[in-house]
């Protein structure tokens, strides 16, 4: 696989890294300068001396000119929402895939196809009716209102179904003879075998949840429930007012960190899982 050592791969990789990393670098550097530097239109490439004050301003109070929610609150909201969405999606799709694969009941395939069809109906398409339902249920301005409409996942159900289909039917039969009921089999055999898939899906779904913009913007007016992605865009004012770019950039950097942490931590974990389990 390894050919003669050549510089080309490194060069290409370097260019790629540069293209992806440079905007982030600008943001990180920008978050350490004072408001006037960036206000003048300068794009500094070296760190400034106002990092601590920018980050503490963002963390505690948001940008001064506009009274925004502190980043600390928004981060907690986003984290809670993303974790609930990811965990909820996994729980629901695991159980529905289990039902579709391991049980024989009338209209089983119809149920599966109904789930499958919802792939074509993401939140953005059904946003008005969904909003109406949430209003009728009096779930606006609540964490439940943020999470529940996003919690069913056809994609994850499909993925788990495909994985469950690869589990040899003899395991089910051996479990039947051992005397394990359906829930026992789920807990003792299916769940441990699915760990790597769950870990991989969690990463994807966490980031999906974290990046939600349109739905949180619509369903939540209460600023104490604001998520960081929505809050960040609200910091950027329109009209004459000067934006406090230094604080906004500090907030943006903080908004980046949790998804990055999840990717880094979970990646290690599921690679470990991939190496250790085998059918």
């Amino acid at each position: 696989m390894l050919e003669k050592r050549s510089l080309w791969p490194y060069l290409w990789l370097g260019i790629g890294v540069l293209i992806f990393a440079f905007p982030i670098y600008i943001t990180v550097i920008g978050s350490t300068h004072d408001i006037s530097t960036i206000g003048r239109g300068d794009v500094p490439l070296l760190p400034g001396g106002h990092g601590v004050e920018n980050y503490s301003a963002a963390w505690a109070g948001g940008a001064g000119r506009f009274t925004t929610t502190p980043a600390a609150v928004m981060l907690v909201n986003s984290l809670l929402m993303a974790v609930l969405i990811a965990a909820g999606k996994i729980a629901i799709s695991l159980t529905s895939a289990y039902a579709v694969v391991f049980f024989r009941f009338p209209f089983r395939m119809l149920a599966f196809w109904l789930i499958f069809i919802t792939l074509m109906l993401p939140v953005e398409v059904r946003i008005i009716p969904t909003f109406q339902v949430m209003v009728n249920l009096d779930m606006t301005n609540s964490m439940a209102g943020l999470v529940v409409p996003l919690i069913a996942s056809a994609t994850a159900t499909l993925l788990f179904r495909q994985f469950f289909l690869t589990i040899p039917p003899e395991y089910v039969e051996a479990a039947k003879i051992d005397g394990a009921g359906p829930m026992r089999f789920f807990k003792d055999v299916v769940l441990p075998l699915s760990v790597t898939n769950i870990a991989a899906l969690f990463v994807i779904l966490f980031i999906y949840g974290w990046n939600q913009y349109l739905w949180p913007l619509l369903i939540v007016n209460d600023r104490s429930l604001e998520t960081i992605v929505v809050g960040l865009t609200k910091m950027i004012g329109t009209g004459d007012a000067q934006n406090e770019w230094n604080v906004i950039m500090a907030t943006a950097v903080m908004a980046l960190l949790p998804p990055v942490a999840v990717v880094v931590l979970m990646q290690r974990w599921f690679i470990k899982g991939l190496v250790e389990t085998e059918k």
Binding site: P168, E170, Y171, E173, A174, V189, P192, L193, T277, K279
Partner: peptide, 13 residues
Amino acid sequence: VAMVFQNYALYPH
């Protein structure tokens, strides 16, 4: 009853 399967069906985990 106890059964021995062709592919043994041992739980891998």
